[in-house]
């Protein structure tokens, strides 16, 4: 099965139940029932045509920095909160 991927939400259908995402230049229609809070411009995690979570627009650099710290700091059991962490 397809790995779930993050895509940017470009538009919402009038009933809000689906939207169109940018899949690397192509556009895909995805179901948004499980992510009622998704807004245009948000990144959503899409699995088999459905959005299952809304993500923070975190830059790759920041994410990797958090993992660098995690490797270095022996007292951490998980990568620490980063400023983009919405959860």
């Amino acid at each position: 099965m397809c790995l779930a991927r993050p895509f940017k939400l470009l538009s919402l259908a009038p009933d809000g139940l689906s939207g169109v995402v940018d899949a690397g230049g192509a556009t895909l229609t995805v179901g948004l029932i499980l992510t009622p809070e998704a807004k245009v411009g948000d990144f959503v995690l899409v699995h088999a045509g459905a959005a299952i979570e809304v993500l923070a627009d975190a830059e790759a650099q920041t994410i990797l920095d958090a993992f660098d710290d995690f490797a270095r700091l022996n007292d951490l059991v998980a990568p620490a909160d980063d400023p983009h962490d919405r959860h």
Binding site: T35, E53, L55, V77, P79, D82, D85
Partner: peptide, 25 residues
């Protein structure tokens, strides 16, 4: 590291995506 400390937990190493309580809806 958890094993080393003898302190098992459920660590979240995918925080940018996974909420501790998940997607309630």
């Amino acid at each position: 590291r958890q094993r080393q400390r003898g302190e098992p937990a459920v660590a979240n190493c995918y925080r940018r995506v996974v909420r501790p309580e998940g997607n309630k809806r």
